[in-house]
Design a binder for these strands. Structure first.
Lengths: 161, 161
DNA sequence: ATGTATGCAAACCATTTGCAATGAC
DNA sequence: GTCATTGCAAATGGTTTGCATACAT
């Protein structure tokens, strides 16, 4: 979908949510939503804070956290925690559902798209539970680290002799 | 598997790992491993700390974190972060692989076993990635919260009129 | 004997909170 | 005008770190 169209829709959805919940439509809230949907994919709070400042719209961190809470509630943003004590976020609307490959060595994160897996998971009925979304994290070694560790292990074996 | 047998194996695996990595075999490390495998399923650091104290084996939180790092590295423990800023852990060996259902309203966590889903995910080959384990989190409403929110929504609609 | 692991207390840092000032309605 | 929202600065709380002491090897 064309990004202008996406922007239009998410702004509309956010407005609906704010209205329904009797929240105020502040410029800060819309500025944050629009920055997230302009180009950011995965991001943490610090990079979002800096990006806001860079585009000359200073908001406090408190407002950033408040707004993110709202965006999570209305499913316009997803939150991830990959093992470190740092939360990552990503846009949720028109964002091809993907899974995440996390390297336990260098902590890099790679997106992993797999339509079949997606439909299998989403179509599963679960008793006494009403699902809204899901996260699949696959942990392991990225190719770079797998190679490095192989070499390192060889060296260790040599040292042992 | 009989729990004594499990205890025997995980202690052996831990010993192997410590030896291979030239780490010391301290009583603290074994006490922590054995407590985790005695009865704890999901737990956080604070409850583990208290449980250690209760069984009259005081360890510092620093040691707890150090040891948990080792147990994660040798795949005897799994770590989860379900959205709050609190890490949960669980034993990994002889622990029927299960998924997690997380209620976004009351934050309760339910285990969800599904062998089919498990084998589909595990058997998937991924290019340039060597997987070790995975986590599938399904977010949504537990039955209790789903019921409560339904009632609440009805009341809201009445109030609007 | 050597140097790793422990306990303690302080430091860290992402996130949350309290409160006065602002501004959406 | 009213009260939700903002910014600021302080507080919180899980986790990490530095260092002197203890102890596994």
């Amino acid at each position: 979908m064309d990004n202008d169209k996406v922007l239009e829709i998410v702004n509309q959805k956010f407005t609906e949510y704010l209205t329904e919940n009797k929240c105020r439509k502040t410029p800060e809230r819309y500025a944050i939503l629009n920055l997230i949907y302009s180009d950011h994919r995965h991001f943490d709070m610090d990079s979002l804070y800096k990006a806001m400042t860079e585009q000359n719209f200073r908001v406090s961190r408190a407002t950033l956290y408040n707004t993110m809470q709202l965006l999570l509630e209305c499913n316009l943003v997803l939150k991830h925690q990959f093992g470190q004590n740092l939360s990552f976020y990503e846009r949720a609307y028109n964002n091809d559902m993907h899974h995440h490959l996390i390297c336990t060595n260098c902590h890099s994160i790679r997106e992993y798209k797999n339509a079949e897996l997606k439909s299998i998971i989403q179509n599963r009925k679960i008793k006494n539970f009403t699902p809204s979304h899901y996260s699949l994290y696959v942990f392991g070694f990225c190719s770079t680290c797998a190679r490095r560790l192989k070499v390192k292990n060889k060296q260790l074996k040599v040292n042992k002799v």
